[in-house]
Each structure stands twice: as structure tokens, then as C-alpha cells.
């Protein structure tokens, strides 16, 4: 967005997007995380920060609205900010409480599959993780639906300890204490 001109030269135009709320920085004020956005912008694009958050710009923005509308807008912004904070807190709490289960399931005597549940709570894309598991351990690995709803990763072979180590090492977002290995014996009906 270096050129502010609306002439058609110099396309494609480079646009900077805020690293916090993903909107173009001009719109950060509507995103509910203004404080963080401002800090981010100051750090990463000081020039733009100077332009957008100067005293003049703020005053100009306010004077364009009637007093009544200003009040409403402020109230709305406050609400939105509160919502954003609450959402973040909730996400963090969920992260702290949710568990990753690594299950070793007996498939046939001496043959096992390993099921991994709960990785999605840590912001991981389980499809991708499944692919990574498959690559890392050179086994079949897939995402399967579980009866209670949701999805889990099923890896062929008894890999519970290996997966435990691998997850701890590669996905730093997942705390080690939140992971658990369990064994599940499946009784197969005699056929």
C-alpha cells in the first residue's frame, strides 16, 4: 500500500495485513483487538503506524461522526473488545484443560493400531498431522471418524511411545503433561 494513488499503474498493489487480526491495518480499529494490532503495527511497519495512529488521524476519525453516533460506536467497540478477550481466554483455558489421548488398540494378537485423539484442540490440522505421522513412521495413517462425534488419527502399528515423543518434540504448543498413553483391548467376537 505504498502508493496511495488510485491510478491503475503499479498493479498488483502490495497490501499489508495485520498480523493480529488479519485485516488491513486501517480496519484494525473495528476488529476488537486494537491494542495488540497497534503494537504489532508499530513493531513491523513503523511508518504506517505513524500514519494511522497519529493524533490527527484519530481526531479526524472522531469528528466525522455525530456525538450520538460516536457514543454508540464506542460502546460497540468496547463490547467487541470484551468479546475478543473472552474468546481468547476461553481458547487458552480449553488449551490448558484438553487432553491428547494416545491409544494403543489391539487389532489381532500381536498386531496393534494407535489412535490419537484431541490434537485439534491445540490448533493443529489433524489431516496434516496424520500425513506427517505417516511420513515419519512409514506406516499407514489416516483420519477416521469416531462414534461419539469428532475425528481421530489412526496410525497402523504399535507406535504409542514414538508418537508421544514425536508430538512433544514437533508440536511445541502441546504440553507434555496433557498427553496420555492408554491401552485398549478390543474383544473381537469369535467368528
Amino acid at each position: 500500500m505504498a502508493e496511495a494513488s488510485s491510478s491503475s499503474s503499479g498493479y498488483p498493489r502490495q497490501v499489508v495485513y495485520c498480523g493480529v487480526c488479519t485485516l488491513p491495518p486501517e480496519y484494525c480499529e473495528f476488529g476488537g483487538t486494537v491494542k495488540k494490532c497497534e503494537e504489532w503495527l508499530e513493531e513491523n511497519h513503523p511508518q504506517m503506524h505513524a500514519k494511522l495512529y497519529s493524533q490527527e488521524a484519530i481526531e479526524q476519525g472522531l469528528s466525522a461522526l455525530s456525538v450520538d453516533a460516536q457514543k454508540r460506536a464506542a460502546k460497540d467497540a468496547e463490547k467487541k473488545a470484551a468479546k475478543a478477550v473472552a474468546a481468547e481466554a476461553k481458547a487458552q483455558e480449553q488449551r490448558a484443560t484438553s487432553k491428547v489421548l494416545i491409544k494403543r488398540i489391539e487389532r489381532n494378537k500381536r498386531k496393534y493400531v494407535t489412535a490419537v485423539q484431541g490434537l485439534e484442540a491445540f490448533g493443529l490440522d489433524i489431516k496434516k498431522v496424520a500425513k506427517d505421522f505417516g511420513k515419519k513412521f512409514a506406516t499407514g495413517s489416516s483420519v477416521t471418524k469416531i462414534p461419539g462425534g469428532g475425528e481421530e488419527i489412526t496410525v497402523q502399528g504399535d507406535l504409542s511411545d514414538d508418537i508421544f515423543d514425536y508430538v512433544v518434540e514437533t508440536y511445541k504448543d502441546v504440553p507434555e503433561d496433557n498427553m496420555e498413553c492408554i491401552e485398549e483391548k478390543k474383544k473381537k467376537p469369535a467368528s
Binding site: 488510485s6 491510478s7 491503475s8 498493479y11 498488483p12 498493489r13 497490501v15 488491513p24
Partner: peptide, 10 residues
Amino acid sequence: LTLIHRYPSC
């Protein structure tokens, strides 16, 4: 919108 941002006057 990302496309619009790149080519706004089109």
C-alpha cells in the same frame, strides 16, 4: 477481497 485489494480500480 485480497484480489480486490491488489487491483482496486478494476
